[in-house]
């Protein structure tokens, strides 16, 4: 039997290791890689609207995804602003709220930069403000596992509050409305 030369053996072992690595990576992709190997595809998103009891309720909707997370967040929030299709649900985000830009920082916090018309008709109570903030935050967190918190900006600037009650000048996490 012909003996395998030393360099050939090293190459063979390296090839085995590489093949094994590729197989494992393909079978068990890490969440981080899914963020970057993002494919534009049709997907179902869960949008949070307000039901008759004032609680948040999910409505599923098909969207055409894009090739990156930020654009998908924008598509998702734009769908949220359009309002619910189901009966007896209410949209908390104003219909004319225009999302200018979305960017995600190193802490995986998504910054949603709205135009100032989000406050054009800002006349709601604490509950209405909670419904707005958490329908938005919950929708983003529910659909994008890569994002851990949300911050709301207006015209690129930090915003203390929307309707004069809740403090939104901080990273926001989702919550259920009790």
């Amino acid at each position: 039997m012909k003996r395998i030369s030393k360099p050939a053996l090293v190459v063979l072992i390296a090839a085995f290791i590489l093949a094994g690595y590729i197989v494992v990576k393909l079978l068990f992709p890490s969440p981080a890689e899914l963020t970057f190997n993002y494919a534009a595809r049709q997907k179902t998103v869960k949008l949070y609207f307000v039901n008759q009891d004032g609680k948040l309720q999910i409505e599923k909707r098909e969207i055409q995804g894009s090739t990156n997370v930020s654009d998908d967040v924008m598509i998702c929030v734009t769908e949220l602003a359009k309002g619910p299709k189901e009966k007896n649900l209410y949209g908390a985000l104003p219909k004319y709220a225009l999302l200018r830009e979305v960017y995600i920082d190193d802490n995986r916090c998504a910054y949603l930069d709205f135009s100032k018309n989000i406050l054009t008709d800002a006349k709601g109570g604490t509950t209405a403000e909670k419904q707005l903030v958490f329908s938005l935050v919950n929708t983003v967190l529910e659909n994008f596992g890569q994002i851990t918190s949300v911050r709301i900006l207006m015209e690129g600037e930090e915003l203390k509050t929307l309707y004069g009650h809740l403090d939104v000048n901080r990273p926001l996490w989702g919550r259920t409305l009790e």
């Binding site: 992709p29 969440p31 899914l34 802490n107 995986r108 916090c109 935050v137 919950n138 967190l141 529910e142 659909n143 994008f144 596992g145 890569q146 851990t148 918190s149 901080r170 990273p171 926001l172 996490w173 989702g174 919550r175 259920t176």
Partner: peptide
């Protein structure tokens, strides 16, 4: 505030991920 939702398991893009608590500034 807000934490009850942030630590639940959520499904996204075919994998399950447990969210880590973020350090607040």
């Amino acid at each position: 505030d807000d934490s009850s939702f942030g630590v639940v398991k959520r499904e996204n893009a075919g994998f399950k991920e447990k969210k880590e608590a973020q350090n607040v500034d």
